[in-house]
Design a protein around this nucleic acid. Sequence first.
DNA 1: AGAATTCCTTGATTTGGATCAATCGAAAGC
DNA 2: GCTTTCGATTGATCCAAATCAAGGAATTCT
Lengths: 246, 246
Amino acid sequence: MAEIAYKTKDCGTCPIRHRAVCARCEADELVYLDQIKYYRNYEAGQPIVWSGDHIDFVGSVVTGVAALTQTMEDGRTQMVGLLLPSDFLGRPGRNNVLYDVTAVSDLTLCCFRRKPFEELLTTHPHVSQRLLEMTLNELDAAREWMLVLGRKTAREKIASLLLIIARREASLHLSSIVDGSRFDLPLTREAMADYLGLTLETVSRQISALKRDGVIELQGTRQVHIPDFATLLAETGDDADGGMPD
Amino acid sequence: MAEIAYKTKDCGTCPIRHRAVCARCEADELVYLDQIKYYRNYEAGQPIVWSGDHIDFVGSVVTGVAALTQTMEDGRTQMVGLLLPSDFLGRPGRNNVLYDVTAVSDLTLCCFRRKPFEELLTTHPHVSQRLLEMTLNELDAAREWMLVLGRKTAREKIASLLLIIARREASLHLSSIVDGSRFDLPLTREAMADYLGLTLETVSRQISALKRDGVIELQGTRQVHIPDFATLLAETGDDADGGMPD
DNA sequence: AGAATTCCTTGATTTGGATCAATCGAAAGC
DNA sequence: GCTTTCGATTGATCCAAATCAAGGAATTCT
């Protein structure tokens, strides 16, 4: 079972605290958030909540990876959300979860009890504005994902996923030496298949093909090195610019 | 080109005005919204904005259907948003559009100039809370759509789309005699294909198959009658309950 | 009325990815 | 050290949907 640790220490990647609260709030709000904040730790593979469950917290990923998945009656499953560090989990105003949430790797969540968090939303407008911004970003990501699911080939799907992960890795290590061109895949082949609407065999074959063609290099089965981002980008089928910012 | 009509009359389905503003605001806010509100009309097939364009308004669909689509270099396209009456268009805080937006049928938008609307968001917190709620709903819809794109068969995809449209139609005529079991498809076969990640031939074949099997009835090519919702639901592959509310 | 266009249907063939099946390597348990 | 387990790889075969192709029905244009 998940160990629940009540602490008040800072969690480096929490976007609510750091961007919405710290940046613009007064000290008393920090104290308030600290009072309703706690940490949850999960091991790789553990379920966090099941679809339909009551849920009394929201939170964000501090370390590790969590996945939202939907399952059909006959067992077909599709991942519909991939939560990396700093991503937000949970939906204010809803009591029940619509998706299965599982820890894909070892995972630490920074959680807030839902009721007081919802109160904070009504009393501190910029928190809900920050949440709106984050949700809109997530919607944009979901729509890019739809293009991947609906129209890309297996090879393009794999290339797209590798690029997404590489970029996220890079953004986590902004100020460091790491360039994002070498990283550990946080997903099994099966999880990648669930993300991309493929089978794990096809994922394995396409990764082997990309390796054979020199687009990526592998150390063991999980550590990826991208010798040239442009080559990988060309394999995704996307435009070179990929949507200009603001 | 789009006719831009400056009017102040009420638009029946605008969720910002009716749910977020009318329900909880004072009269002066209505006046303010009226000052920045105007209508745009488009004919079926007309583009509204292209990906990358600057956009200076947000708004919501009053009548008709609009689509957000993404296009790859080689012309493959995927619809990533289907906007029916009462759906919101545009992203506060972003100057440029990420998707092509087109009128699928004749369309009327109720628009607000973006800058004053964004000011309203900061001065009237419950508007941004309402917008958050709407965005979260859209994200849920996007995630259900991902399951459709990633894991469903062509037949299940068609059944799912028909059910989505039937439900939306029904919700628009809540208090009327119409039961949603008979409606006009607002989409061409090609638009349905773009929605579902299929070709238009496959869409046509599967619709013919559902008709042959008595799941749906057709009057001409667009008017659909659903004799029994349970039968159609069974064709979607979804759970019978389909995610319980709250 | 006839021609052109748009939307849809249906048939024949191909193909990319699923499915079924065997094997391998690394880590964990006894 | 040996076995079990879990994740990954690779091969052989199959099938659902794509592709290629021909027409049909309804609407608009001339």
